[in-house]
Design a protein around this nucleic acid. Structure first.
Lengths: 144, 144, 144
DNA sequence: GGCGTTCTAGAATATTCGTAG
DNA sequence: GCTACGAATATTCTAGAACGC
């Protein structure tokens, strides 16, 4: 789309969740939520340790070292966690914590809704409460 | 000691850090700080997954599933993080995030100081700011 | 020193400039200024390119990808560029731009002055103009 | 009421981008 | 040209709030 800044969190998250290369961050079955396998996510996507960014394509997506930083971003953009719990238990608990987030306007196969995922600033909170549109920094030029 | 509740966080932390069974939570070289290897800590101590609390002795110490919960407790009891970063690099980044906390009155071989490790409630904060509770540093809110 | 947060820019810069491992950021002859060889600095210290962080020790110091970000930080902490201009050109332009910065209270062998290197917020600017001291976030307690 | 666990938000610094001077 | 700075987002660490025991 036109006015989405590809460097900002929603666009980065969109690219990551649509990449089959990183199953540690994927959609849930309904296509409305996010699943994060913390341990694998930190290892595969975040900048933990020197030899971490094995997979190019994730390199540079996030500069965070902590999964908590990504969770802070999710909250900042209006996502909330649904059911916290350990992961599927099939592996004897080896997969670590599993996070399940639900995000407004972050729907599978609906990139057109992505422009609505706004950073919750003080002003945007008020506007959302009033049913209006939030404002962000304009995106850099991209020829559509 | 007498007036330390062994069920509360400071006592539990003390037992854990003094147990050689869980090297993922240990003291730093100076004996004043704490080192937490997040990945191993979650695996060995926290209740992540069914097969997690393999080692009796940690079983029941914490019911938390998230390392973030322990960090919340550490902050609540006055600990603060010193230098966040990835772990030692010796293993190529496989060991995950490493946390380094410093806690007031949480000194190796000084269990007598443990009674001073207080939960920072509103009231305790005020007392600390007034300097009533010993020579620990005044609260983070300082007027210039 | 006591109230210097090792995670903040002045401390990180201090460590870097005192490390013989990264000659691309070094002191000038007078010991009061900084010299930055942009191209080598980006390759050796910043996260530019896939094989960039070859030298452990710089890993994690800065998460920036652009030299301009470090320059922004220098400006923010009161540094200014002295003799802007191209590099010595003796090597046929291979060394890239050379920056020469001068920083207040950033003097070789004077780590005691480091506490005065303050972030220039709006308030600190006013106070500096009035000759007073600026305020920062309190540093965590370092070991004595 | 206090403590533990979890989820969310505050506050300060860090990084990026754009642009005035 | 190009240096310095404003403004927005990103990352980190700490604290608030809700809920259960």
């Amino acid at each position: 789309p036109a006015d989405i800044n590809p460097n900002y969190f929603p666009a980065r998250l969109w690219r990551l969740v649509n990449s089959p290369r990183f199953p540690s961050l994927r959609r849930d079955a309904r296509g409305r939520g996010l699943l994060i396998q913390q341990r694998q996510f930190e290892r595969a996507v975040l900048a933990v340790g020197p030899g971490s960014h094995g997979a190019p394509g994730a390199n540079g997506l996030f500069k965070a070292k902590r999964c908590a930083s990504i969770i802070r971003q999710l909250n900042r953009y209006g996502f909330c966690e649904l059911a916290a719990g350990a992961s599927s238990d099939r592996d004897g608990g080896c997969s670590g914590p599993l996070h399940h987030f639900y995000g407004p306007h972050f729907v599978r196969d609906r990139p057109d809704l992505l422009v609505r995922v706004k950073r919750l600033t003080e002003a945007n909170r008020a506007k959302l409460a009033a049913g209006l549109e939030g404002k962000s920094r304009p995106a850099p030029r991209s020829q559509q």
